[in-house]
Design a protein around this nucleic acid. Structure first.
Lengths: 112, 112
DNA sequence: GCTTTTCATGTCACATCTGACATACGCTGG
DNA sequence: CCAGCGTATGTCAGATGTGACATGAAAAGC
């Protein structure tokens, strides 16, 4: 919920004229894409963490962050940036290409 | 330059023990990956913009932002977040998959 | 069952990012 | 020359993201 005002402002200033609050079910196409993208990263974080069988607290420590922020990342909470998720993945040893594939994939590949 | 303190703090709290200021030529592997990734997005923004033959000012307006911020994006300035670049690309009509490929590619594909 | 561990959610002070502005630089046409 | 356009770079007030803490609710282990 943190960026609704900005979104509206941006869309309007670009000449888009947003109806009420929602486009047709709450999200513009652009925002839907961002959410999907974030969910991909969120899933990747959780997958990587459980592959390494770490707790959220351990991962938080590894990242120089906290358990609660890790939880929010994995929940794709609006308060977490793509930057943070990407940095976290890289820190867990993922490559740039890995990150790219997590973003491209709707659901993470179920591979072990 | 904006996140050097945090970086150091994070690495140390993770038990890494950073030498002086630099690892061996100024960047950790993780940070190098982030920079490459951002450069990929930066190039993509410039490419997309010039494909559409827009000026930075026009794109700024389209994004609800400004010419100077677009310039910084295209320069992969440290003050620009990945989020902003991704949103910009999506706004210019790129798909989630497009974004992924821009991230994976060291230099953008020279395709027309 | 209940204790312990792990995860989820809210809040907040402080850090970072952002749009806007000012100003400078290079280039092109006149 | 120099005026105009596009781009680059610095700065800053205000918006957004972050780590940390508190607390609650599931699971796990006993």
């Amino acid at each position: 919920m943190t960026m609704d005002k900005r979104k509206k402002r941006r869309l309007e200033s670009a000449g888009w004229k947003v109806g009420g609050t929602s486009e047709f079910l709450g999200l513009t196409e652009e925002e839907e894409a961002i959410v999907e993208l974030k969910v991909g990263l969120a899933n990747a974080v959780r997958d990587q963490r459980s592959r390494r069988s770490m707790t959220q607290e351990q991962l938080g420590r590894l990242l120089g962050s906290s358990q609660s922020r890790v939880a929010k990342m994995e929940a794709a909470d609006p308060s977490v940036s793509i930057d943070l998720m990407v940095r976290s993945l890289l820190r867990m040893g993922a490559s740039r290409k890995d990150v790219a594939s997590y973003i491209a994939a709707p659901r993470s590949k179920r591979a072990a």
